[in-house]
Amino acid sequence: MPPRRAVTGRSQEPRQRFAEELRLLRAQKGDSLRQLGDALGWDWSLFGKMESGQTIGGPEVAEALDQYYGTPRLLLTLWELAAADPTQFKERYRRYMTLEAEALSLWHYAVSVLPGLLQTTAYAHDLLSAGGMSGAELTRNVEARVGRRELLDGDHAPRFRSILSEAALRTPLEDAEAWREQLEHLLKMGERQNIVLQVVRQEVGLHALTNTHTMFLRLPEGRTVAWVETGYSGELVEETAAVERLQLSYDLVRDLALPPAESRKFIRQMLEEASCEPST
């Protein structure tokens, strides 16, 4: 089969193609970035970042642009392709990691697995291995993840709050001893002055972040960004209105969580239950 030829001369790379279409449609409309922002109710700087390829925004932004430009599902489809591109996931994650290292405070919600900043070596190994990693790649990524824990060490370490779903605490490692070590590690980390751990019991039912791992970063210049991750992709959210909506959801979940002292008791109870079980 002969190689596929480009017909339009536009980029075949999803993220770049998305940005090209955004620039073209705005030029055809004759709007400035500020006019576009005023018309759609988003900060105009978001559209500038989307057109330059710095971010792809969220699906709600793509849908609003489709409606404004009269291009039903065109931009949403291009957004989905850009969001699914694994090379772009790595690029976004690298930028997130840079921002994480600069953050003055962090707050997080865990759906089903413990946050990387609180994982033991054994937990990180089993989790990444279950995701398909092996050999040198697995070793390298486990070392990198464990190394991230240094972020929470030292006199000037940022404040970190993690709200853990009960599901994350009821999904043990296959090695019972390694799982007990992980629970002990959580209790030890929770004793630090800069770390707050809370637990959301399963009995509270569905809530605003039921299926969304979320990390918020408060940066030195005062703004907050969020990293949102599902089982298939992750997105760095920087647009102010979108971050505020996510933070409202987080606040609602925090209201449902056990207080820190009760959360420590719950984790300790989980450890006692794990200690009573025979090792396999």
Results as ranks from 00 to 15, higher is better:
residue 263 S to N: 10
residue 251 D to Q: 14
residue 239 E to S: 09
residue 239 E to T: 13
residue 174 E to W: 00
residue 184 E to T: 08
residue 257 A to I: 06
residue 272 E to P: 13
residue 251 D to P: 05
residue 247 Q to W: 05
residue 240 T to G: 02
residue 182 Q to C: 05
residue 235 E to N: 14
residue 276 C to K: 15
residue 209 L to N: 08
residue 230 T to K: 09
residue 261 A to M: 06
residue 171 T to C: 12
residue 262 E to I: 01
residue 213 H to Q: 07
residue 211 N to G: 06
residue 168 A to T: 13
residue 159 R to D: 08
residue 242 A to D: 08
residue 236 L to T: 13
residue 275 S to I: 08
residue 242 A to Q: 03
residue 276 C to M: 12
residue 263 S to K: 05
residue 169 L to F: 05
residue 273 E to Q: 15
residue 265 K to A: 15
residue 275 S to A: 10
residue 182 Q to L: 07
residue 165 S to Y: 02
residue 270 M to D: 08
residue 276 C to P: 14
residue 241 A to W: 01
residue 240 T to R: 10
residue 181 E to Y: 02
residue 213 H to N: 14
residue 198 Q to Y: 01
residue 230 T to W: 01
residue 239 E to G: 09
residue 241 A to Q: 10
residue 236 L to M: 08
residue 159 R to I: 04
residue 177 E to G: 13
residue 260 P to R: 15
residue 244 E to V: 15
residue 271 L to K: 14
residue 167 A to M: 07
residue 271 L to M: 13
residue 194 N to V: 04
residue 188 K to V: 07
residue 272 E to T: 11
residue 246 L to T: 11
residue 179 W to A: 06
residue 178 A to W: 00
residue 222 G to P: 12
residue 194 N to T: 15
residue 210 T to W: 03
residue 237 V to P: 01
residue 271 L to G: 07
residue 218 R to G: 03
residue 258 L to E: 04
residue 210 T to S: 07
residue 244 E to N: 14
residue 186 L to Q: 10
residue 190 G to F: 04
residue 270 M to E: 14
residue 246 L to F: 05
residue 231 G to C: 03
residue 195 I to S: 03
residue 232 Y to D: 07
residue 161 R to V: 09
residue 211 N to Q: 11
residue 225 V to N: 07
residue 236 L to P: 02
residue 237 V to I: 15
residue 262 E to A: 15
residue 245 R to Q: 13
residue 223 R to F: 02
residue 179 W to F: 13
residue 256 L to P: 07
residue 266 F to Y: 15
residue 205 G to Q: 09
